[in-house]
């Protein structure tokens, strides 16, 4: 299975993950500062900043787009409960 890396910049930890992993599956276990509310892509609590490697995440769904828009999110923001790793290297930090 293709591997990818996700770096949580706020705690200086890089995790090697299989493609298809959602950020939510990793960030809590590793102790990163990204926090979750509904975990279903509705509340916007888990908004994070993609520092680099945004192209290595699956495109946001219509729902995620709507929530980001409602929260006046910058282009670099994604919801950690929705974002899915495709491959390559990704660097994130709490939004």
């Amino acid at each position: 299975m293709p591997k990818a890396t996700v770096t949580f910049e706020d705690i200086d930890v890089t995790v090697t993950v299989p493609a298809g992993t959602r950020l939510i599956e990793v960030s809590e276990k590793v102790g990163a500062g990204i926090t979750y509310g509904c975990r279903e892509g509705e509340c916007g609590t888990c908004m994070m900043k993609i520092v680099s490697g945004a192209e290595n995440l699956a495109q946001p769904s219509v729902l995620e787009h709507q929530v980001l828009s409602d929260n006046l999110a910058p282009r670099t923001a994604r919801l950690a409960c929705q974002a899915q790793v495709l491959g390559g290297d990704i660097v994130v930090r709490p939004g």
């Binding site: 890396t5 770096t7 705690i11 200086d12 930890v13 890089t14 995790v15 090697t16 993950v17 299989p18 992993t21 599956e25 990793v26 276990k29 590793v30």
Partner: peptide, 17 residues
């Protein structure tokens, strides 16, 4: 970590289980 002097760790997801 508090003082920003922590060394970057690289770990495999399997270690987090």
């Amino acid at each position: 970590h508090l003082t920003g002097t922590a060394r970057r760790r690289v770990i495999d997801m399997a270690e987090l289980a």
